[in-house]
């Protein structure tokens, strides 16, 4: 491969990774935007999502890569997989908020954040206990279709990832911009007390943010499985940390920022792996994060928050 086609290939890979990180980063940013809480449970909601997706696809009759579907059957199975996974992880996120975080809502300091780390470990250990430590073969019903452009290869699964990510991000943008509850989410993020005094029930807004963020993490989990063809109890950490970095890079609390940050992190990972070395990927990612935060502390699209009195 020439350097140019290598570059193109890594841009393609980077966009796929980036789409996945973006889906995951949105969950951090939605919750942070409203509660100013970094939800570390999100790492492993994503990990649980990979398992829910795996079990759902297996429940639909797939096993490993042996069943290949085409046309409407393929689309139906994938759509069902995404739908079930997103609903289950969405409900899991709402449950975490309702039963673990809400009782801590008025506790000042880092208690809630520390608790999310605890919840993350609980999810991690529950999966470890019931599934075991080994990698699981993730079912993939997609045919091995490949498209060549200028020496680079795009696989069908990558097209799928882009389509899913774009559809979900457009849906989220529409939801946040144009629905009543979406407007209430934005208002609450900008001034929670004033939003309350407009009659917004802030608990509902918070639950909505957790549902949406966790559902997107579930979608990200299924994307992860379809992309890598495996999952295990440990996949939440690397992906979660990179997605969290993406959210901070884009400007945490900022929805377009999370999307941009995800794509940027994906591209950095792919290009860094190719041209610096795969084992250096995280070094490159976090060095860039540090540099961005030194020169733009609010992130790429973030605003410097005005002091709330």
């Amino acid at each position: 491969m020439t350097t140019a086609s290598l570059l193109l290939q890594q841009l393609i890979n980077g966009l796929s990774l980036g789409a996945m990180y973006a889906l995951l980063a949105l969950g951090f940013t939605l919750v942070y935007g409203i509660l100013e809480l970094i939800n570390f449970a999100h790492f492993n909601v994503f990990m649980v999502g990979t398992f829910i997706a795996m079990w759902t696809l297996e429940g639909l009759g797939l096993s490993g890569q042996s069943v290949i579907l085409h046309g409407p059957a393929l689309i139906a199975v994938l759509a069902a997989g995404f739908a079930v996974t997103m609903v289950v992880t969405g409900v899991l996120g709402v449950g975490i908020e309702r039963f673990v975080l809400r009782p801590l809502r008025d506790v000042k300091g880092p208690a809630a954040m520390i608790t999310t780390i605890g919840v993350s470990y609980v999810l991690f250990n529950v999966i470890l206990l019931f599934v075991g430590a080994g990698s699981q073969n993730f079912p993939n019903p997609m045919p091995q279709a490949r498209f060549n452009i200028a020496g680079a290869v795009i696989e069908l699964r990558e097209v799928l990832i882009w389509v899913v990510a774009i559809v979900l991000m457009l849906a989220l943008t529409f939801f946040v911009q144009s629905t009543k509850i979406g407007r209430a989410m934005r208002a609450t993020a900008q001034d929670p007390e004033a939003a309350r005094m407009m009659g917004v029930e802030v608990d509902r807004v918070i639950m909505t943010a957790f549902f949406l963020g966790s559902a997107l993490a579930g979608a990200g989990g299924m994307v992860f499985g379809l992309y890598y063809n495996y999952t295990s109890f440990i996949v939440g950490f690397t992906a979660g940390l990179r997605a969290f970095t993406a959210a901070v890079l884009g400007g945490i609390g900022n929805v377009p920022g999370a999307m941009l940050g995800g794509i940027v992190i994906g591209l950095i990972e792919a290009l860094g792996s190719q041209f610096v070395g795969a084992s250096w990927a995280d070094v490159v990612i976090f060095s860039i994060l540090v540099l961005v935060l030194v020169f733009r502390p609010a992130g790429l699209l973030g605003r410097v928050a005005p002091n709330k009195s």
Partner: peptide, 11 residues
Amino acid sequence: VLEARRLFPRM
């Protein structure tokens, strides 16, 4: 009508 208006500034 809140002190210092408190509009939602980015809406």
